[in-house]
Design a protein around this nucleic acid. Structure first.
Lengths: 340, 340
DNA sequence: CTGAAAGCGCTTACAG
DNA sequence: CTGAAAGCGCTTACAG
């Protein structure tokens, strides 16, 4: 039988309303004498307010959801980038005294259910296709503040945070072009589903245009963002005679490196590889992976700031927030053989 | 203004109690005619029951917390093993229609607050020291069902799930001894804080005893479970003249490999390395890491089953559940130079 | 098979 | 500065 607000009030000889004010720090409404007295009783009993009761009575739950697409039997954190975001977001929210509810979404209808059943104050959508974001209706969202990460959807119901995908891939390609590569493969998921991949692919081609070089469309490898898919793509990339490859994720790049090795190609001797994200695994690889770094910590911080600003009624930017990226040169890129 | 139970009841011309019974599938109490009618109205309005209201009125929240120690400014998922557990647990809970609340714990008092404020039905404690588990009091825990993972604490307030740490390290050491190694380093955190490390260290020494070999205590390297700490330890291990090393985590092993390389040692040519966990990163490393695999999926499944069994009032094992481990031989172990 | 009533533990105007 | 009262959206015995 945990102690309740009412118990505290009875013991202090005041009304529940007064205890409520003290517990919530509405000090203007309570004399410092009663405040101290109540606080002592609270302390002694180890009173913890009931969050469900608060959510019900107040308009706020101090709860933020992180929604991530996941097939029924899949784990969310197989993707290192997702795992990183989960951790960073939890940390940012905790700093602001909010709680994180993590929820895999197998079917579109679950989004509504997740958003509404817990009266979430806000929710972060990670890894959804642009079209899925665009399909969200006010009716499904309710008053929940939404931040979609890494999306190019246009739905005004969601705030948007992303990093500069176009520039990231441009940097990667420009780096390789500068080293003398011309047969550069681009490996990543289909562009149609997400603007992130489309933007990266465009940035990649922009580097070619800037360099006055032509790009062979046959070097576009459509592949899932997994190590296994990367490995398989690596052998195909080797067979295609590419001297370099830009992958849309580190885990994919590392898979490709393995495929290249299986095909008898050395990295960066025969083929240069550039990843994307600068996840921890990028520096665990041998050689260490050259990659486009995005600042996950900043991304999480901005996401939470947008969320809290909007919750506080402050104006939030209608446009998407785009964070800068940076090329991190490590051990997987070098001049092509012909140049050395 | 989202639609409520009351709205549905009014529209159907029945009492809220009846709608409640229908929504909760208590079909024995409602005629199939009214049930169908109500279900149609629920469907049409996209009614989603309020979880806070349910938690408040009922005894159950269908909410399970995952509590992980984390300094104020730290992210939880820097540790690949933690990231894996987060994903697996979310998936298991989702299958059973429970929700996951993820919570980093910076100070011991936060455990109570986390457990009680949301009226969690259950909570999983991951990565706590045995002593911290043992210090938990009934008063702090309340009615919350607790499962502590990877602990050798004796607190009866917590159910326990772990893998066979003693056997895992014994297998690792036996493998290396069988290859002819004798100067084998053991690298991991201090044994005093967690039984997991102590058990692994004992299993490691048991292999020596079984082989009738002596182990040089100087080859115990106390080191945090991070890549950076591993790298630093790797150079010391090289300097100590070890021909092999057993690390208590894959991420640590990979760091050690880097340190060994920095010291001019090849793996497995000069030094063999065995990791622990068989996290994804184990197969991303070059060469692929020989490691002790624990079945994370099974661990998460057992954790959730224990939790739900206990919630359903079924008997749960008082003893800890210990899951089997397996040695996965890959590319980082070989006979020592002198033998080849 | 169905309903009226109380209650879960809070917050929020509104009075005083 | 403090309290009485209503209400948040459900569930749960208890009657009928």
């Amino acid at each position: 039988m945990p102690v309740t607000l009412k118990d505290i009030a009875a013991e202090a000889g005041v009304s529940p309303a007064t205890v409520s004010n003290v517990v919530n720090g509405v000090s203007a409404r309570v004399s410092s004498g009663t405040r101290e007295r109540i606080l002592r009783i609270v302390e002694r009993h180890g009173y913890v307010p009931s969050a469900p009761a608060r959510s019900l009575a107040a308009k706020s739950s101090r709860l933020v959801g992180l929604l991530v697409p996941a097939a029924d039997r899949d784990s969310l954190t197989i993707n290192p980038h997702t795992a990183g975001v989960v951790g960073m977001l939890e940390r940012e929210l905790r700093r602001h005294d909010y709680h994180l509810m993590l929820r895999g979404i197998a079917r579109p209808a679950e989004v509504t259910e997740a958003l509404r059943s817990w009266r979430l104050d806000g929710a972060v959508l990670l890894g959804f296709h642009d079209a899925e974001i665009d399909r969200l209706k006010r009716r499904a969202v309710g008053e929940v503040v939404l931040v979609a990460m890494d999306t190019y959807a246009e739905n005004p119901l969601a705030l948007r945070v992303r990093s500069d995908d176009h520039e990231g891939a441009r940097l990667a390609a420009a780096h390789l072009l500068g080293l003398g590569h011309r047969r550069i493969a681009f490996a990543g998921p289909e562009s149609s589903a997400t603007g992130v991949v489309r933007q990266r692919h465009e940035g990649f081609r922009r580097a070619f245009a800037d360099a006055g070089a032509a790009w062979d469309e046959e070097l576009r490898f459509t592949v899932d963002t997994t190590h296994a898919a990367g490995r398989e793509a690596g052998t195909r990339i080797a067979a295609a005679g590419a001297t370099a490859v830009v992958a849309t994720a580190d885990v994919l790049a590392i898979g490709i490196m393995e495929g290249l090795a299986a095909a008898g190609r050395s990295v960066p001797g025969d083929v240069s590889v550039v990843g994307y994200d600068d996840a921890d695994i990028a520096s665990y690889a041998t050689p260490k992976l050259t990659t486009v770094a995005q600042d996950l910590r900043a991304k999480a911080a901005v996401t939470v700031r947008l969320l809290l600003d909007r919750l506080a009624g402050r104006e939030a930017p209608a446009a998407a927030v785009t964070l800068p990226v940076e090329l991190v040169r490590r051990g997987t890129t070098a001049a092509p053989r012909a140049f050395s």
